[in-house]
Design a protein around this nucleic acid. Sequence first.
DNA 1: CGTCGATTTGAAATCTATCAACGATGGTGG
DNA 2: CCACCATCGTTGATAGATTTCAAATCGACG
Lengths: 244, 244
Amino acid sequence: MLNPFIQKIEARFSLSDADKRALTHASASVRVFSPRTDLISEGDTPDHVHLIQSGFACRYKVLPGGGRSIVGYLIPGDLCDLNVAILGAMDHNIGTLGACDVVRIPRTVIDSLMDSSPVLHRALRWAGLVDEAILREWLVSMGRRSADQQIAHLFCEFLIRFQAVGLATENSYGLPLTQTDLGDTTGLSSVHVNRVLQELRATGLLVFQRGRVTLPNVEAIQAFAGFNPNYLHLRPKGGSHSVG
Amino acid sequence: MLNPFIQKIEARFSLSDADKRALTHASASVRVFSPRTDLISEGDTPDHVHLIQSGFACRYKVLPGGGRSIVGYLIPGDLCDLNVAILGAMDHNIGTLGACDVVRIPRTVIDSLMDSSPVLHRALRWAGLVDEAILREWLVSMGRRSADQQIAHLFCEFLIRFQAVGLATENSYGLPLTQTDLGDTTGLSSVHVNRVLQELRATGLLVFQRGRVTLPNVEAIQAFAGFNPNYLHLRPKGGSHSVG
DNA sequence: CGTCGATTTGAAATCTATCAACGATGGTGG
DNA sequence: CCACCATCGTTGATAGATTTCAAATCGACG
């Protein structure tokens, strides 16, 4: 299988063969994590960068009262902890959902890769900025979209992100989430998530069953959710041509 | 008045005199923006970086239906657009709330400053990462805190951020926001914001009147909101000592 | 077959939005 | 100085959305 990280980056940047070789080499040794285990916990200062090769993980916080809030998903090709060193310590946890193959790359290796390749440097910054843009869009969803629009929007986002790493067909993909996970992501109760999913299914906008999401009419659900893929910043392919 | 940007950075990093001189020089020419005007709009690719010298601005998105969602605040010392060039285009707007003094620094100048000073480079990356951490915390607030906790939490955050640039006393600060703005930030209606504020006032946790916030008992409201300032990453002061 | 977690269902309680009106305030122009 | 206007804050009543609690069903799996 193609390295999903390279695949994701190359959707937007043109990596040199040397870059690709270096990345492939750096991600040689894979470690397997079981479902529902933490990769990193709040307060940690890991000296490795984690790269998801396969599987599904999330960023989350736990509240005093016991509630859990999922504040981001990591899918194959996603990198985390690139920046913890600057912040000093993690302010949230990262845990797997399904089983995950994870590559741990020493920070020093990543740093030297970025130093030696400007394109790669840009690509990694880009990936981090997209994560931030996703956070903003989630905030919009929680604040100003109805529960059904919010869930529809999330599933639209997943479709595009999964397609970018070859893990989705034209209109469907596997999603190892429970309805409780979805609730902790959207701020809804799992009971209400259940009812929303039923309604979306009834209106023919989406089916989520046995770990697989299908969007029978992609344009329709995007319109319903007010989904505009701008914020994922996937379109243009720069990085190799000179600007200016 | 001390340059709020330098003040903010120096709370955590030790800048050299040369760094400070360069920054002060770069932020020499100030431009004034009226209240409620846009600095940058969605789709723009500005070639300048904006630095808020005084006043109050916000990042926001507007939805098809007309709703507005505020996804971040910019206070004196905050920088924006540092990264737009990499993303290609803004995916949200930035607008003033009160009147703002804004410095516009050409990207080339900022880039060369970062190239020449590793500490400054780290400091700017740090500021961006804190913005991201704030987004995550807001997501937690919207998803898993009650409306009163959420507003209390926001006001706790403001206190710390304002204190970092010398704009707050031990327990109060000016805040040029309307209740509608607060609603667009928290995802609540302005009517409900009004009722929540009344209740918080009645319980003695906070008073917000005529543009000034007072927290009579800081520890109490922090406890009530479940506020933990970790995510603002303000404590340690590194950047000058070698890490080995 | 029994168990465990996840999904589904129903009913009641709670929270929040909406709508509509009124009051306060500040600025502007006559 | 006053009338006027616009914006913001406040209040009450009602409708709607969502949570909570409790129980039933379903499915995977040892």
